[in-house]
Simulated assay, not measured.
Amino acid sequence: MRDDLRPGPRNTIGDVAGVLVGHSDDARLASGVTAIVFERPAVASVDVRGGGPGTRETDLLLPERTVERIDAVVLSGGSAFGLDAAAGVVAALAEQGRGFEVGPMRVPIVPGAILFDLTNGGDKEWGRYPPYRELGFAAAKAAGRMVGLGSVGAGLGARTGALKGGVGSASSVTAGKGLTVGALAVVNALGSATVGSRPHFWAAPFEMEGEFGGLGPAPEVPPEAWFPPEKPFAGAHTTLAIVATDAALTKAEARALAVMAQDGLSRALVPCHTPLDGDVVFAAATGHAEIEGDRLTALAMLGHVASMTLARAVARGVYEATSLSYPEAQASWRGRFAGG
C-alpha cells in the first residue's frame, strides 16, 4: 500500500478538493484560530478521545443526528474562551449566505474544538470579552488553498511534552482513481512527538519525501523516551485534528474514518489520549470522487491512509514550529536540532 501512495502537490489538506484553510493569530496574545472552510457543505463526523475535550456542536456530527453536512470546522486556542471563535466563523459565512436552510433563514453549521494555551506567556488580560470571535472571523475570511504551518493560527501558542508544538498538515493520493486524503493537526500534546532527547520523530516510518527532516526512525529507543518530561505548565494539553477526503462518504462512513484516523495521533505522540488531553479528530468528505469496488474494503484502506497522513501532519506541526518570544519559552525542534 505504501508504494501506491504519494503526497499531493502542496502536501497539505489544501490538496483535497473543496477544502480551504485560514489562520488568524495575535503574537501579543500568543494564541490564535484556524478555520477549515468547505467550498460546499461537506459530510462530516467526529471522534473524541482524551479525558479533557472542549467542543462545540460535535453532538450533531453523530451519524443518527439530522444535519448531514457542515460548512466549516474551527480549531482554537484559548481553552473555553476560544469557543467564541466559532461565532466569528459563523458570522463570516452568514455574510456569504451560507448555512443550513430553515425557512427564510440560513444557519452556518460550524463545529469546533479548543486547546489549552492560557499559561504560555502571552498576555491574556483581554478584559470583559476575549478576542477569539474576531480571530475566528478573520481566519474564515483568510481561508484559501495555501496552508501555513508551524506557529500560526491555533498553533501559535501550542506546546508538547518536549518541544514547541504547532500546526502541521500533510496529504496522500492513492493509486488508481487517485482519491486524496488530507490531514491537519494542531499539536499541543502532553506527550512528545520526538523520541526522547533525539531529533527523530515517532512518525518517521510514515514520512514522505523528507517532509520532517528525513532522519528516519531513531536507531534505538532509550527507556526514558517512553516518559517525556512534564510540560512547564500543568494542563497545557490537547491535539486537535481534521482529516478530509475528496471521496463521497455517508455520515456513518465519515465517523468510521475519524475513528481510524485517531490511530495517527497514537503513532505520532507518546503518550497519547491521556486523561489530561482533549484529543479530537474531525473527518470530512467533500464528495468530489466516487469510491470504486467493495465499499467496506475501500473505506478500511481510506481510514488506514488517513491515520498515516495524520501521523505525518503531527510531526510536521512540531518540525515547522518556532519558539515564542517570551522568557522561558519552550524550545522548538528547529532551534534545538537545526540551529533555527
Rank of each mutant, 00 (worst) to 15 (best):
S151Y: 04
S151E: 04
S151I: 02
S151W: 03
V152D: 05
V152A: 07
V152R: 06
V152L: 13
G153R: 05
G153K: 03
A154R: 11
A154S: 13
A154M: 12
A154K: 03
G155R: 03
L156V: 14
L156Y: 05
L156M: 15
G157Q: 03
G157R: 02
G157V: 12
G157S: 09
G157L: 04
A158Y: 02
A158T: 07
A158S: 08
R159N: 11
R159G: 13
R159H: 11
R159T: 15
T160H: 10
T160G: 04
G161R: 05
G161L: 01
G161V: 04
G161M: 09
A162H: 09
A162R: 15
L163W: 06
L163M: 10
L163G: 06
K164M: 09
G165W: 14
G165Y: 13
G166I: 07
G166T: 00
G166M: 04
G166S: 11
G166E: 12
G166A: 11
G166D: 14
V167P: 14
V167Y: 01
V167L: 12
V167E: 05
V167D: 05
V167T: 14
V167M: 06
V167Q: 10
G168D: 05
G168M: 07
G168R: 01
S169P: 09
S169R: 02
S169Y: 00
S169K: 07
S171A: 14
S171H: 11
S171D: 11
S171R: 13
S172T: 13
S172Y: 06
S172A: 15
V173I: 05
V173R: 01
V173D: 07
V173M: 06
V173E: 00
V173W: 08
V173T: 10
V173N: 03
T174H: 03
T174E: 00
A175N: 05
A175G: 09
G176A: 08
G176C: 03
G176M: 07
K177W: 12
K177L: 15
K177V: 15
G178M: 12
G178I: 10
G178T: 00
G178E: 12
G178F: 14
L179E: 04
L179M: 00
L179V: 14
T180R: 14
T180I: 12
T180G: 03
T180A: 02
V181L: 09
V181C: 00
V181W: 09
V181A: 06
G182I: 02
G182M: 04
G182R: 07
G182K: 06
G182L: 06
G182F: 11
A183R: 06
A183S: 11
A183W: 14
A183Q: 04
L184M: 08
L184G: 08
L184Q: 04
L184C: 10
L184R: 03
A185G: 01
A185M: 02
V186K: 08
V186Q: 04
V186N: 06
V186E: 07
V186F: 09
V186T: 02
V186I: 12
V187Y: 15
V187A: 11
N188M: 14
N188P: 08
N188F: 15
N188V: 14
A189C: 03
A189Q: 03
A189W: 06
A189T: 12
A189F: 00
A189P: 12
L190S: 03
L190H: 08
